[in-house]
Amino acid sequence: MAHVNATETDLEFLRKDPPFPEKSACIITCLLEKIGIVEDGNYSKMGFMTIVSPLVFRNRKKLEHMNSVSENCDKEINRRGSACQLGNEITICIFKYAPELHFKS
């Protein structure tokens, strides 16, 4: 938040559907970096699978579904956008293929 001078108001946008405004998207990108879904400024399908595998590893069908989500997003995410826009693109793609991961409040 400090890096992009974000406020609590910028966090409120994260309760809504993406795309998020610039500062909110920057926060998402930062969070995705921290958990390994963004690596070296790019989407990491391996990072995504590392995060979701413990949630679905006992269910082969769900694991295969998440692998498909990972592959689809790897193909669809634009690598030429801004660093913050990457957070929007990843979130949109994951929610598109795996809406069950969208924890709306």
Rank of each mutant, 00 (worst) to 15 (best):
M46V: 14
C30D: 09
I94W: 05
P54G: 08
L11Y: 13
L101T: 15
N72E: 13
G41T: 06
L32I: 01
D10H: 13
A83M: 06
G47R: 10
K34W: 01
N5S: 13
E39L: 13
M66E: 15
D17L: 12
C30M: 02
I35W: 01
L86V: 05
S105F: 09
C84F: 01
C26P: 01
L63A: 15
E33N: 11
S70L: 10
R58M: 13
I90A: 04
L55I: 11
V69Q: 04
D17Q: 11
S105N: 13
M49W: 08
K23R: 15
K16I: 00
I51Y: 15
I90C: 08
D40T: 03
G81V: 15
H65I: 05
C30N: 05
I94S: 08
I28C: 09
I92F: 00
R60N: 14
P99L: 04
L14R: 07
K23I: 04
F103Q: 09
I28Q: 04
S24M: 03
A25I: 07
E22D: 11
C84A: 09
R80V: 01
A2S: 14
R60V: 14
F20Q: 01
V38G: 01
F57L: 05
N67T: 15
I51N: 10
C84M: 09
I92V: 15
G36V: 02
I77E: 06
I27C: 12
S68Y: 10
V52N: 10
E100N: 08
K96L: 05
E39D: 14
L31K: 09
R60G: 02
S53M: 12
E12H: 12
S44F: 02
K104S: 11
